[in-house]
C-alpha cells in the first residue's frame, strides 16, 4: 500500500512537469498560429502606402477604417449571401451522399467493395484542373452557366471521394454490436443507418463539414470559370475588384478576407463542442 502511494506522488510530479511542458508548447504554437492572422486583420486597417512604408509587421498607425466601408459599398453582402447559399446547399448534399456511400463501404461485405474503395482513392488523385474544360462544356450545355446552380455539381462531387474515404474510416470505429443488436430488434438497414450509424458518425460528419465547408467557402477556380456576371459571383471572386493588371490594393483585399473569415470563426466557436463530446457513451448505454 505504501509503495503505491509513493508511486502516486511520483506520478503526480511527473504529470505536473508534463503539463508544464505541454502548456509551454501550447503557448508557443498559439503565437505561431495567431501572429499571421493578427497581421492580416491589422493590415486591413491601413492604407497601402503606410503598410509598405512602415512594413507589414507594424501596428496600424494611424488606424484607417475606410477599407471596410468601401468593401461593403462594393456589394460585399451580395457576394456573402450567395456564398452562404452555395456552401449550405452543397454541404448538406455532400454530407448526405457521402455518408450514404460510406455506410456500405465500412459495414457491409460485398463483392465489389474493395474495387470501389480503391476507385474512390483513385478519384482523390485526379488533378482538379483537368476537369475545368469538360465541366465548363457540360455546364454550358445544360444551361446552368453563370448561375449558382453551376457550382453545386462540382463542389459536391469534388468533396465526395475524400469525404467517403474519411467517413468510411469513422464508421469502421463504430462497434459492430450496435447494429447487430438493432437487427435483432427487427430494424432494417435503412432504419439502422438513419437511427444508429448516422447519429454515431456525428464527429466524423462535423469534421467533414468543417473541412469541406472551408474549402468551398474559399473555392476560386470553378467559381471563376463558371460564373461571369458580378451579381451572380461568390465571395472569393469579390477580391477581383481590388486587383488590376498592374495594381493590387492589398489592405482592401485583406479587409475582404477578414470579413469573409469572420463567419467561419463564429461557426467554429459555436459548433466546436460537437467535436469533442463522446457521443458513443450515451448510445451504447441507451
Amino acid at each position: 500500500m505504501k509503495e503505491r502511494e509513493v508511486d502516486y506522488a511520483k506520478e503526480k510530479r511527473k504529470s505536473i512537469i508534463a503539463w508544464a511542458f505541454a502548456i509551454f508548447f501550447a503557448v508557443v504554437w498559439l503565437v505561431i498560429t495567431l501572429t499571421p492572422f493578427a497581421f492580416m486583420v491589422m493590415n486591413s486597417f491601413r492604407k497601402q502606402f503606410d503598410m509598405l512604408a512602415q512594413g507589414v509587421f507594424h501596428l496600424p498607425d494611424p488606424w484607417y477604417f475606410a477599407n471596410y466601408t468601401e468593401v461593403v459599398e462594393n456589394g460585399f453582402f451580395g457576394y456573402f449571401f450567395r456564398s452562404v447559399i452555395v456552401v449550405a446547399v452543397c454541404l448538406v448534399l455532400m454530407l448526405i451522399i457521402s455518408s450514404f456511400a460510406a455506410y456500405p463501404l465500412s459495414r457491409m461485405q460485398f463483392k465489389l467493395r474493395g474495387l470501389i474503395y480503391a476507385g474512390i482513392v483513385a478519384m482523390m488523385s485526379v488533378p482538379m484542373h483537368v476537369t475545368l474544360i469538360p465541366i465548363f462544356k457540360m455546364t454550358t450545355d445544360i444551361g446552368l452557366y453563370d448561375s449558382l446552380g453551376a457550382l453545386v455539381g462540382p463542389y459536391v462531387t469534388f468533396a465526395l471521394p475524400m469525404s467517403v474515404f474519411i467517413l468510411t474510416a469513422f464508421m469502421m470505429t463504430i462497434p459492430k454490436e450496435i447494429e447487430e443488436s438493432a437487427e435483432i430488434d427487427g430494424c432494417n438497414r435503412f432504419n439502422n443507418f438513419f437511427t444508429m450509424i448516422l447519429p454515431l458518425s456525428k464527429s466524423g460528419l462535423s469534421t467533414l463539414a468543417i473541412y469541406n465547408g472551408v474549402s468551398m467557402w474559399n473555392e476560386f477556380a470553378f467559381a471563376n470559370t463558371l460564373l461571369q456576371t458580378p451579381s451572380h459571383k461568390t465571395l472569393p471572386l469579390a477580391l477581383g475588384q481590388f486587383k488590376g493588371e498592374h495594381s493590387l490594393d492589398i489592405p482592401m483585399i485583406l479587409a475582404v478576407l477578414t470579413l469573409s473569415v469572420l463567419p467561419m470563426i463564429i461557426l467554429f466557436i459555436v459548433f466546436q463542442d460537437k467535436l469533442v463530446k463522446g457521443m458513443m457513451a450515451g448510445a451504447v448505454k441507451g
Partner: peptide
C-alpha cells in the same frame, strides 16, 4: 448476401453517378 448487395448498390448509387459525370469522364478525356 443478395440483400446486402442490393442495399449497398442503393446507398452507393448517388455518389458513384456524380463521380462518373464530374470526375471519371474528365479523366478519361
Amino acid at each position: 448476401a443478395k440483400s446486402i448487395a442490393l442495399a449497398a448498390t442503393v446507398f452507393l448509387i448517388p455518389a458513384l453517378l456524380l463521380i462518373a459525370v464530374y470526375i471519371i469522364y474528365p479523366i478519361i478525356d
